Structure formats: structure tokens, C-alpha cells
Simulated scan of single mutants.
Amino acid sequence: MSTSDETELCYPHLGNSSCRKNVRPHSVSVSIYTTLASLSVLTVTLNLMVIITISHFKKLHTPTNFLLLSLSIADFCVGFLYIFQIILMDGCWYLSANWCLFYSVICLVLTSASIGTIVLISIDRYIAVCDPLHYPTKVTVNRAKMCIVTCWCCSVFYTFVYMDILKQPSLSYSCIGECQAYIHLIAKLMHLFFSYIIPVTIIVLLYVRVFVVAVSQARAMHSQVGVVTPHGSLKVYRSELKAARVLGVVVVGFLLCLTPFYIVLLNIRFGAVNMSSLVFVICLYYSNSFLNPMIYVFLYPWFRKCLKYIVSLQILKSGSSEANIL
């Protein structure tokens, strides 16, 4: 075997039993690695800011913000998954089979938790806009925390059920140097159904309902604002509506990043799925974890104010948790 052929193998000394690399120009490879590394750092940093902000400032301890905190924790962890994608960019897996299995499990847990949290956020906004009078009694901080814990527990349970249907990645290698798993037809349909069709249907139906109710209530309040609508109620409603719009942007961004992955997954033949062949749509999906905190920066004034507290180290001062950042 020639030297030029050996450079295309993940493990040249293993010959034909080794997987082949995805050969790219050096400049292209450097650009891809730099972009992924930058996204990893920014995703981890920005979501850490969200976690610190909501955890530290007591004024932000609301059911909606705790849901955002859960989403940010998942996004924060996703930032570290870019490391595995960087490894897979040339189509070679240089770590052990156990690490491949670990990556698959963690990825599924985090993505399932993110999807579940997005559904909870949609339900929260639905109740806040469509039933604002009963929202404080129906949606409490304790109930929000219970829902979040349940969501993460269900994500872990779903992951182990799904992975039990899959064969071990180490048993389905077609060559040495890849991280792949044989996806059984039942597992593929189950994942499509529970991780995409059901959540997306719930999210879309709830936000369509929120939009219809918001428009009708806005018209009614506009015509009666000077007659029977208390100013305080109008202010609260506008606040809830603004929160619904912001979180609606989060949901839209999530769906735009999520959908391509499932389109590609459906177009791949049933059987072995090579992780490197899905690298683009997986990275696009991961990029949503960077997009979410950016949405908060541009659309939430309180988040920008909290960032100033953190960057200027005012957060270290005594009593800073009681600051009025709203």
C-alpha cells in the first residue's frame, strides 16, 4: 500500500481493516475545527452566564425562569459535546468503544431533556396567556421544579430503553476507527415518534393557540383599556405576552435546528448509521444551544443587566442576590 493511501486511513498500520478519513484541504479543516472550538467555548460560557444569573438573583426565581435554567443546563453540557464532534470531523473515532457508547448515551439524555423542557416551556406559556387568572395557582415554583426533575428522569429512562434496543456500538463496526450503532427499525421509529413527532405536535398546537388567544385578547384590551381594564392587569398581561414572544423565538430556533437532523435520519437507509455522515446536522442541532442564550441577550433586558453585574464582579458583593434587575 502506498504512502498516499495510508494517509487516508484512520489507522494506517491496520491496513484494510481501518476506516478511511474524510480528506479535506488543510485550510478547510482548520476553519472547521476553529469554528467548532469557538462554538463550544461560546456555548459553555453563555449558558454558564444564564445558569449563574437565574440561580443567583432571587427576583428571577419564577417557574418560567426555572424552566429556562433547566434548558440552559442541558445547553451548557451540549457545549462539551462539540469536543466529540471535533474528533469525528475527519470520520475517525480515536477513542475506545466505551467512550463511543458514553457519547451516544449523554447525547441522547441531553437532547431528550432539551426537547422535554421546550414542551414544558410551551405549556407554561399556554397557561400564562390563555388562563392568566389561574396561572399563579396552577404554575408554582415547586410544581415547576417537580416537572423539571420528572423531565430529566424520563429522559434518562427513555435513553436506557432506547439503548437497550440498539446493539452495542462495538459489535457493529464495519471497520476500525468509527463510532456507529446499528439502529433497529423499532428504535428508529420510536425515536422519531417520541423525540420529534409528539413533542413538535404539542409545541406547534400550543403556540398556535397562544397566538390566537393573544391576538383576540389584545384587540379586546385595546378597545376597553380606558374603560374596564385595570392598568396593573394590562401591564401583567403585556409582560406575559412579551415572555411568550421571546420563548416563541426560542421554540422556532429549536425546531429549525432540530428538523434537519430528522430529515437526514429518515433519508438514510435502515441499518447502520455512521456518526460522521451526520456530523453537519448534528452540529446544526448543537448550535441551538449557542442560539438560546443569544436570544436572551437580545430580547431580555434583565439578562443584559445581569451580565453587567457578573462581568463587573458586582455579583460578589453582599446582598447582590436581592438586586432589582427587572
Rank of each mutant, 00 (worst) to 15 (best):
M190L: 11
H191W: 04
F193L: 08
F194I: 15
F194Y: 12
F194S: 14
S195F: 07
Y196I: 14
Y196P: 11
I197C: 07
I198Y: 00
I198S: 02
V200M: 08
T201Q: 09
I202C: 05
I203S: 02
I203D: 00
V204G: 04
Y207E: 02
Y207W: 02
Y207N: 09
V208A: 01
V208R: 02
V208L: 10
V210R: 00
V212N: 06
V213P: 06
V213T: 11
V213R: 01
V215D: 11
S216M: 04
Q217E: 10
Q217P: 05
Q217R: 13
A218S: 13
A218H: 13
A218L: 12
H222T: 15
S223V: 14
S223F: 05
Q224V: 03
G226P: 01
T229R: 01
H231F: 14
H231T: 15
G232Q: 13
G232D: 14
G232H: 14
G232C: 11
S233C: 10
K235L: 08
V236I: 15
V236G: 08
V236K: 06
R238A: 06
R238H: 09
R238C: 06
R238K: 04
S239N: 13
S239F: 08
E240I: 15
L241H: 07
K242L: 04
A243I: 03
A244K: 00
R245L: 08
V246K: 05
L247W: 04
L247V: 15
V250Q: 14
V251E: 05
V251K: 08
V252I: 14
F254Y: 12
F254S: 12
L255V: 12
L256N: 00
L256K: 06
L256P: 08
L256C: 12
L256V: 12
L256R: 07
P260M: 02
I263F: 05
V264F: 09
L266D: 03
L266N: 06
N267S: 07
I268F: 08
R269V: 07
F270N: 14
A272Q: 07
V273W: 00
M275S: 08
S277M: 04
L278N: 03
L278E: 02
F280D: 06
F280I: 14
V281T: 15
I282R: 04
I282G: 13
C283D: 05
L284K: 10
L284I: 09
Y286A: 12
S287Y: 09
S287Q: 11
N288L: 09
S289A: 15
F290S: 13
F290C: 13
F290M: 13
L291K: 00
L291I: 04
L291A: 07
N292M: 07
P293R: 02
